[in-house]
Design a protein around this nucleic acid. Structure first.
Length: 272
DNA sequence: CTTGCCGGGTC
DNA sequence: GACCCGGCAAG
């Protein structure tokens, strides 16, 4: 990792970030997907090339979860709402900028002097279709705690997550047995009542799980003194180890592989 | 051993 | 072209 790769802000921040990064890496504190689970998918390739403070882009998250070519067009904004995930808030606004302002001012305690956002608020709201209102019911346990109230949020119980059974995955999951079940385990969306809600988008559920997981990781790092840039650098590192179609879908779902993988050529879907 | 994929083959 | 696969490097 060279300073030149820290392609956003604060490469003034890099001087502090670089040793931080090494320290974490050498100390085996792996954040990012591996922190959230013992078996996790690659992070979206698009995230790897995104500006470090760009936050998580919904379509890319969905893309990585389902392995389709990256859909560049957003959903019809008229049907898209943004819900605050802050504990006991749940405020729903119609635009991302509005929800970001709400989070900055109401929860992060940042005044107008902080015009340049570092993207932290991205972790405290989720997008939702207007027809997936019930999603919040199944995700109520995901509400993040205030970083200023009671220290860092607890780490997910990795042991119990690793014990999650493949059979707990939603039936619609296209992932192989080697693919992660952890995201579902975290948000407990494997509960029968969650499964039986036909209006709930699985992609939305998984996206929310991932968003929360990364949010917890970032808060946890911040609480122990690491910068958000360091957090994103760690994500970037794990991304280079992206699993390919074979690993993600498994031999039993070869029909889901990209053409190149089927022909034993360089994977076109999960690019490094 | 598994994985990713190059190189080269067949159709 | 599409498609398949032997074989190799890397882990």
């Amino acid at each position: 990792m060279s300073p030149a790769e820290c392609n956003t802000e604060p490469c003034s921040e890099f001087a502090a970030v670089s040793p931080t990064y090494n320290r974490i890496n050498n100390g085996n504190l792996y954040i990012g997907t591996s922190m959230c689970a013992s078996r996790s998918p690659p992070l979206p390739a698009a995230l790897a090339s995104a500006p470090l403070d760009a936050g998580i882009e919904d379509s890319d998250t969905t893309h990585f979860l389902f392995g389709d070519p990256v859909p560049r067009k957003r959903k019809n904004s008229a049907r898209l709402m943004f819900r605050c995930l802050w504990k006991n808030c749940g405020k729903v606004l119609s635009t991302s900028s509005a929800i970001q302002k709400h989070i900055r001012f109401a929860h992060l305690g940042r005044g107008k002097e902080k015009e340049h956002s570092d993207g932290e608020e991205d972790f405290y709201y989720t997008e939702m279709d207007v027809n997936v209102d019930t999603l919040s019911d199944g995700l109520s346990s995901l509400t993040p705690t205030s970083p200023t109230s009671a220290g860092p949020p607890p780490f997910p119980d990795v042991g119990s997550l690793a014990a999650a059974q493949v059979s707990d995955l939603p039936i619609v999951s296209p992932l192989s047995v080697s693919a992660p079940s952890t995201l579902c385990a975290i948000c407990d969306c494997t509960q029968p009542e969650a499964r039986n809600r036909p209006s709930v988008s699985i992609a939305a559920v998984l996206k929310t799980c991932l968003t929360y997981c990364l949010g917890v990781a970032r808060l946890w790092l911040a609480a122990i003194g690491y910068s958000s840039c360091a957090f994103l650098l760690l994500i970037r590192k794990t991304r280079g180890e992206a699993k390919k179609c074979r690993k993600v879908y498994g031999m039993e779902r070869k029909d889901l592989w990209c053409t190149a993988c089927r022909w034993k050529k360089a994977c076109q879907r999960f690019l490094d």
